[in-house]
Design a protein around this nucleic acid. Structure first.
Length: 256
DNA sequence: ATGCCTATGCGACATAGA
């Protein structure tokens, strides 16, 4: 079973490219971030016509997440628990084929310091609590998405230039680490232990051509899920295509 | 030190991204 995460940076702008990648990569479940549309405007028909089950948690203009699945989705929940006042669409979770799949779009947090960074850290604190609850089920859980955190300097092409960025701040990294050490496996880092791999390249300054990237899209596996991991990868060639997102698809294969 | 690019919205610039 192949599970993937892909920040599409606008589903309307990315529909053709996403459909092409789905045909090539043949994932079973895809977690999308930054669909940038309300639920009613998500191009659900294009996916359903190709055999996908679709669930969305969108909002106008910004943010928004969705799950595509070959199998039906059950026990659906929208929004990260812990703050009923939070109106940003950044989280959707469902059960698919015996797995619990949680799709997140973690706040960017820039500029830092400031209210956006405070929101990021508060959101991560809520995520830490929810991640602990998910682990306590002892189910196979995959917590995947755009985390907007570079876990270490090994995940940043130009660490000196990024040192004060919200994606690299010690507070962001500590919050990520607090979740990781609960017992999650970072699938990509486990697969590429000592390799330099990125999942995002800025549109600006020729970042792709210079391989000035970041590793910010992560798949965290609960112990029961990690036991089933067969392979993981980053479809980096997608970044070179016309009308590409600034992120590329990142995936893991789990034994059935 | 800053902008570099891209997407969206009721749009002719502003905001957000990372």
């Amino acid at each position: 079973m192949r599970l993937a995460t892909f920040n599409v940076n606008g589903i309307a702008a990315r529909l053709a490219g996403l459909l092409q990648w789905l045909e090539e990569a043949k994932p079973d479940v895809v977690a999308l971030q930054e669909i940038k549309c309300e639920d009613a405007r998500f191009p659900r028909d294009a996916f359903e016509a190709r055999g996908w089950h679709v669930e969305t948690h969108g909002q106008k203009g910004f943010n928004g997440v969705a799950l595509l699945s070959r199998l039906p989705l059950g026990e659906l929940s929208r929004g990260l628990p812990g703050d009923p006042e939070d109106e940003q669409a950044r989280f959707i979770e469902a059960s698919i084929g015996g797995l619990r799949i949680a799709n997140l779009y973690l706040p960017n947090g820039n500029p830092q310091p400031g209210p956006k960074f405070a929101y990021k850290l508060a959101w991560m604190q809520r995520l830490e609590r929810h991640a602990r609850d998910l682990l306590a089920t002892e189910q196979a859980v995959v917590l995947l998405g755009d985390w907007n955190v570079c876990p270490t300097d090994a995940d940043v092409a130009r660490p000196a230039e990024m040192a004060d960025d919200a994606l690299c701040r010690p507070e962001s990294r500590a919050a990520f680490r607090r979740i990781l050490v609960q017992g999650w496996t970072d699938a990509i880092r486990a697969r590429f232990l000592n390799e330099t791999v990125y999942t995002y390249w800025d549109y600006q300054a020729g970042a792709w051509a210079k391989n000035w990237g970041l590793r910010i899209d992560h798949l965290l596996l609960s112990p029961a899920a990690a036991d089933r991991m067969l392979d993981a990868g980053i479809d980096r060639d997608v970044r070179a295509r016309d009308k590409a997102s600034d992120h590329v698809p990142v995936w893991v294969d789990l034994a059935d």
